[in-house]
Design a protein around this nucleic acid. Structure first.
Length: 425
RNA sequence: GGAGAGAUGGCCGAGUUGGUCGAAGGCGCUCGACUCGAAAUCGAGUAGGCGGCUAAACCCCGCCUCGUGAGUUCGAAUCUCACUCUCUCCGCCA
């Protein structure tokens, strides 16, 4: 969440930055409640001070053999007032919290302002989309034809938006996962984590999925647990409620996990293929860093995501998201989009964000900059490094041959037992 | 699933006949002394949040926090209840 003190100190400035995200007037009620809260606090704290000093007085009177009954009765009355005021503070704070938890992060000044994705800015392109001398097929045709992707049986098992990988398809998915993890751990300095795939509601609040986006997730029946929509959630929450040593920063974490998303409200979009699934695999990158370095870390993380696509020789571009297209927790986001012949355009395969202290504040992840210095919130970053299912789709489409077979990218062959081409078996 | 033990500061760990306990002691860390320098030793300091004060901050003052939530009481780390988590033993089990 955004800094409550900043709201109070510079309400117009915060309002102006929220306007960039197409939000207006969300602070008005909050500020009113904030004033109310402080007003009550002053009152109730004075009463509590009286109670504390008086209670000590009672003890002294008893020790001295005097009768404290009158004072006790007085404090008892004050206690009732305190209880009433405490209740009121609690209510006001609950309202303030629910407002604050539903306000998105403030955009960084370098983020283009606009209502939607049409205001995104392309930053750079890498590679040349291949020109085919035959009619290229979409991966949802290539996969079943090679009998490595099976959408029909997936539907039988689980319904729409699921995929069964078979044979070399399953192996290719596994190869890509291992390839990504190896690159990020061995070349980019990330530490591999294998986290739980179900987490508590607290974690979801920590990274910003809750309370606002409950309908996007799968909740476990009868429990306050959710299937993770991304490894960002367990990785970022790993150090929730902890105070880190400055020497531990920056911390680079990576994890392979399946991701589960309800995809509510996206009916009819990307209905074919593996692009938009209820369950998909992803290798995620997360960083916890000191605030002054978070923007250079964002550039590095984006470069880390790009690197694996370069190694796979898949053409891509990098896009800076506008205020209208950014996620809830992000202050700045780069999307990496891979060339997808079936769409005849670039398709998101990674999203790298600097959340600044927005998540750290929610999850209460702090560090001590130095001895004797005050605790500070870390900055958190997350990025896909990259989506695995979409990688498979991109490989099938970009590496397809006229006879329907698919060439295995060179860097993956060691992970595929040396297989160079996937053919119908 | 059954039985039992526990949850205290950055870490370890006292404190449970209710009051002067946000909390002994130790470790760690910071500063100082000693030293050519270091180690060792000695001395001092060292929780977080919120609110007031302030232009803002420091300082200072107050409130809250000893797993979480409720309760008893003039007063709760200490007593009661519920919950969560951890550990040990038994059962079951990949």
């Amino acid at each position: 969440m955004i800094d409550a003190k900043m709201i109070r100190a510079n309400p117009e400035q915060v309002e102006a930055r929220l306007n960039k995200r197409n939000l207006r007037g969300v602070l008005d009620e909050y500020l009113q409640l904030d004033g109310r809260r402080r007003q009550i606090l002053v009152q109730v704290e004075e009463l509590k001070n009286f109670r504390n000093t008086s209670s000590q007085e009672v003890g002294k009177l008893k020790k001295a053999g005097q009768d404290p009954t009158e004072l006790m009765e007085k404090v008892r009355q004050v206690g009732k007032e305190i209880a009433a005021l405490d209740e009121e503070v609690k209510n006001v704070e609950a309202q303030m919290d629910s407002i604050l938890l539903n306000i998105p992060n403030l955009p960084h000044e370098s983020v283009p302002v606009g209502p939607d994705e049409n205001s995104n800015v392309e930053i750079r392109r890498w590679g040349q989309p291949r020109s085919f001398d035959f009619e290229p097929q979409a991966h949802w045709d290539i996969g079943p034809a090679l009998d490595i992707l099976d959408f029909e049986r997936a539907a039988k098992l689980s319904g729409a938006r699921f995929t069964v990988y078979k044979g070399l398809g399953a192996r290719l998915e596994r190869a890509v996962i291992n390839f990504y993890l190896d690159i990020h751990t061995q070349q980019h300095g990330y530490r591999e984590i294998l986290p739980p795939f179900m987490v508590s509601a607290d974690c979801m609040v920590g990274t910003g999925q809750l309370p606002k986006f409950a309908e996007d997730m799968f909740k476990v029946e009868g429990r306050e647990m959710y299937l993770i929509p991304t490894a960002e959630v367990p990785l970022t929450n790993l150090y929730r409620e902890e105070i880190l040593d400055a020497a531990d920063l920056p911390m680079y974490l990576t994890a392979y996990t399946p991701c589960f998303r309800a995809e509510a409200g996206s009916h009819g979009r990307d209905t074919r293929g593996v692009i938009r699934q209820h369950q998909f695999n992803k290798v995620e990158l997360v960083k916890l860093v000191e605030p002054q370095h978070s923007y250079e870390e964002l550039e590095k993380m984006t470069a880390n995501a790009e690197k694996v696509l370069q190694l796979l020789d898949l053409p891509y571009r990098v896009v800076l998201l506008s205020t209208g297209d950014m996620g809830f927790s992000a202050a700045k986001t780069y999307d990496v989009e891979v060339w997808m012949p079936s769409y005849n355009e670039y398709k998101e395969i990674s999203s790298c964000s600097n959340c600044e202290d927005f998540q750290a504040r929610r999850a209460n992840i702090r560090f001590r900059p130095g001895p004797k210095e005050k605790l500070q919130y870390v900055h958190t970053l997350n990025g896909s490094g990259v989506a695995v299912g979409r990688t498979i789709a991109a490989i099938l489409e970009n590496y397809q041959q006229e006879d329907g077979s698919v060439v295995v990218p060179e860097v993956l062959r060691p992970y595929m037992g040396g297989i160079e081409v996937i053919k119908r078996q």
